[in-house]
Nucleic acid binder design. Structure first.
Length: 270
DNA sequence: CGTCCAGGTCTAC
DNA sequence: GGTAGACCTGGACGC
């Protein structure tokens, strides 16, 4: 995925069931509406619809944030968000979000980018017309591709350290059918059930669980880590802030507490 | 050079 | 149920 802030565009390569991935660029048209441009040969009708569905999913265009906006409007600290903030980017699949989240644990953001970049570059399927080398124009690897890669790949190429075992175990479980991560998208599952299943995954603890649940649109719990905690403390003019204090501050948001917290700590990104 | 730590988790008490 | 210690990696920092 690549963001061009100047052009206001987002480029991503989406996997397609039963076919090569395709790269799309999302940007504003002259009317200020979203336009999706597919790279390479024109897609067929079915493929075009699948790509649009993928874009809707990644941008959460079908998510109804109005209950959150109603709460934010009454909060001077977050009223700014009601003009359309809060559609956090997510991955096309739950598997991809879980893998990426594991790659954020106990390391710098630069290390996360390096690990994910290596996975995409070496295992990701190439969209037609994409460069033969490099990560550009490649989809995130399928579970089977990650399962087929050996331990040496995770150690020497991805340089994932001890995370390599988690990534390998996870992808093998998904590829074999023993684990269905995509089922976690089911809105009918209670939060507690999703939370328990995520916590049971290798390399997934409380932080990663909260983060993946956020990606799943379950915003009840703030994502607390070594970046969000100090950032929130700084914003409130304190040296440190307890998790309990954060929970209290955002309790009024109920099931939207995590989204309110995230927007608070990332406000200067907008 | 060594130590610390970054968008934590696991295991063993 | 709660808490030390270990854990890959690489960049930042102090000496």
């Amino acid at each position: 995925m690549r963001v061009d802030a100047d052009a206001g565009t987002l480029e991503l390569t989406l996997p397609l069931r039963g076919g090569r991935p395709r790269t799309v660029t999302i940007g504003p048209d002259r009317r200020g509406r979203a336009r999706v441009v597919v790279a390479g040969s024109p897609p067929g009708r079915r493929q075009a619809e699948a790509l649009l569905e993928g874009v809707r999913h990644v941008l959460r265009l079908d998510e109804d944030l109005s209950p959150f906006y109603a709460l934010a409007a009454a909060d001077p600290e977050l009223a700014w968000a009601t003009t359309g903030a809060g559609r956090m980017l997510r991955s096309p699949t739950v598997f991809e979000d879980v893998v990426k989240t594991i790659c954020t644990t106990n390391c710098s953001w630069a290390a996360t980018e390096r690990m994910v970049g290596a996975l995409v570059e070496h295992l990701g399927e190439r969209a037609p017309g994409a460069p033969a080398a490099g990560p550009a124009g490649r989809a995130f690897p399928a579970p089977a591709a990650m399962a087929a890669a050996g331990e040496g790949f995770y150690r020497e190429t991805v340089r994932a350290g001890y995370r390599g075992r988690y990534l390998h175990e996870l992808s093998q479980a998904v590829a074999s059918g023993a684990l269905d991560l995509e089922a976690l998208s089911d809105p009918g599952l209670p939060d507690g059930e999703v939370e328990a299943r995520l916590l049971a995954l290798p390399g997934v603890g409380p932080y990663a669980t909260a983060h993946v649940m956020t990606m799943l649109g379950r915003y009840g719990k703030p994502v607390l880590d070594s970046w969000t905690r100090p950032t929130y403390a700084r914003l409130t003019g304190r040296k440190t802030v307890s998790d309990a204090a954060i929970a209290r501050r955002f309790r009024r948001y109920g099931p939207w507490a995590g989204l309110a917290f995230w927007l608070t700590v990332t406000r200067d990104w907008a």
